[in-house]
Write a protein that binds this DNA or RNA. Sequence first.
DNA 1: ACAACGATACCCT
DNA 2: GGGTATCGTTGTT
Length: 200
Amino acid sequence: MKLGRRLTRKFFAREPDQVARDLIGTFLIRYTADGRRLGGKIVETEAYLATGDPASHSVRGKTARNLSMFAKPGTLYVYSIHAKYCMNVATESEEIGSAVLIRAVQPLWGIQEMSAARRQTDLRKLTRGPAMLCEALGISTVDDGTDLIGCRRLVMRGAEQSQEKMRTGLQVGCGGRIGISVGIDLPLRFYELGSIWLSR
DNA sequence: ACAACGATACCCT
DNA sequence: GGGTATCGTTGTT
């Protein structure tokens, strides 16, 4: 697996649906305290808009909880739900409350560690959902507000070449978002077509 | 101080 | 596909 460059501030400083689409096929990597690598390929994301999106946590403006959505693009927004955690990355620009939810990852590195963290040996159930992947990677609200640009412990990297995506036939599908009751008609969920690692 | 509620997932069927 | 455990955030007393 050839990794490309770390994703830049500029990458995240775009509309959340653009970022969500382009994140498919990139790599999410967590380095443990002893330097081991956990993570894999991002195969499913959802965009949450700053305006006109009733499902977005930023819909009622800035609060203590969603502060990281309004931080610099590339900032991690981690929130708790149902006694679990979900991770997002802030997009566009500071003071604009938009983000991309990471929904599913294809496990590639640190299978042993992630299985232990998930208390789960079935690979298909390791990172197949936003809360699952956070548990597998050891991400919680202590990571909220982390600036991904320049963070040593948590890294997002591109594929080696943008052409590589085309050559390996990675195609991105799009549809309505999952697990919410409003704004489900908006085509803001993105996923790798044909992937067996999606949340649903 | 407290109760309701989720951008969930698990454990059944 | 349905019921429910579980807990931080939020809005209401």
